[in-house]
Amino acid sequence: MSSDNTGRYDFNKGKLEDFPFEDPMLFFSSWYQDSIEQGCADPQAVAISTVNADGKPSSRMVYMRNLLEEGIVIYTNYLSRKGGQISQNHNVALLFHWDCAERQVRIEGVAEKVDDSISDEYFAGRPRISQIGAWASEQSSEIDNRATLEERVKFFEEKYPDVVPRPPHWGGYLIKPSYFEFWQGRLGRLHDRLCYQKAEEGWRKFRIAP
């Protein structure tokens, strides 16, 4: 980025003249690999937005843990706020922001639980403290104090001295995209925004104004 005498920064690291891929998942995978190679901080970090039964949205940062042909996989407590909202409304939105490349990707789609075998495999590879934490933390629920959480950690450390099984309330969601927007910062805020919308056959591609 370059700055002017007002302290505002402009974008100058890339451009999108045309659609480089027919398949947006290949486009996304390419940009994700670029973000890794360019040393972007936490390239797998993504904001996920959900809505409750009243249509009120909420957002939080999570990590993409698997990138599949069908979509993007995240893991969480199914009884958390996000899990509860997904059970009420499967529509979700994702936002990746790779500052070092002056890029963003917006994704909209539906979330569904992955097979238990996939969650089991991922959980088995987590650090032990994270496995214990999945049992100890009743995610998003109100607790009295930090000591309450630490007592639960101690309880489950003693309960599972060796192998820690995956909690039945913890696992993965596969987000199946129906919409992508690839955003590349450009000079003068005249950014490139290339979109893909799921159609009956394939994807409809179009550009939108910055």
Rank of each mutant, 00 (worst) to 15 (best):
residue 111 A to E: 08
residue 150 E to Q: 15
residue 60 R to V: 09
residue 77 N to A: 13
residue 78 Y to R: 08
residue 191 H to D: 06
residue 209 A to I: 06
residue 127 P to S: 07
residue 152 R to T: 11
residue 197 Q to R: 11
residue 75 Y to S: 06
residue 103 R to W: 01
residue 43 P to A: 09
residue 82 K to G: 11
residue 81 R to A: 15
residue 175 I to F: 10
residue 8 R to M: 14
residue 80 S to H: 07
residue 35 S to K: 10
residue 159 K to Y: 03
residue 166 R to M: 03
residue 191 H to W: 03
residue 168 P to W: 02
residue 25 M to C: 06
residue 207 R to C: 11
residue 92 V to C: 12
residue 19 F to K: 03
residue 12 N to Q: 10
residue 135 W to V: 01
residue 181 E to D: 11
residue 26 L to I: 05
residue 58 S to Q: 04
residue 40 C to Q: 02
residue 54 D to V: 04
residue 152 R to F: 07
residue 89 N to K: 11
residue 130 S to G: 06
residue 67 L to V: 07
residue 140 S to W: 15
residue 91 N to A: 05
residue 166 R to E: 03
residue 69 E to L: 06
residue 107 I to T: 10
residue 37 E to T: 14
residue 195 C to A: 06
residue 45 A to S: 14
residue 88 Q to N: 05
residue 155 F to W: 05
residue 103 R to Q: 14
residue 94 L to K: 00
residue 52 N to S: 09
residue 23 D to S: 09
residue 57 P to H: 10
residue 5 N to S: 13
residue 71 G to M: 07
residue 42 D to E: 15
residue 105 V to E: 04
residue 107 I to Q: 06
residue 173 Y to Q: 09
residue 102 E to R: 10
residue 99 D to P: 00
residue 198 K to N: 05
residue 110 V to E: 13
residue 83 G to E: 07
residue 93 A to H: 08
residue 189 R to P: 00
residue 183 W to P: 00
residue 44 Q to D: 12
residue 135 W to D: 02
residue 195 C to E: 01
residue 67 L to P: 00
residue 89 N to W: 03
residue 185 G to I: 03
residue 101 A to P: 00
residue 110 V to F: 08
residue 16 L to M: 13
residue 157 E to R: 12
residue 152 R to H: 07
residue 1 M to E: 01
residue 162 D to P: 02
residue 159 K to V: 07
residue 155 F to E: 11
residue 5 N to K: 08
residue 112 E to A: 03
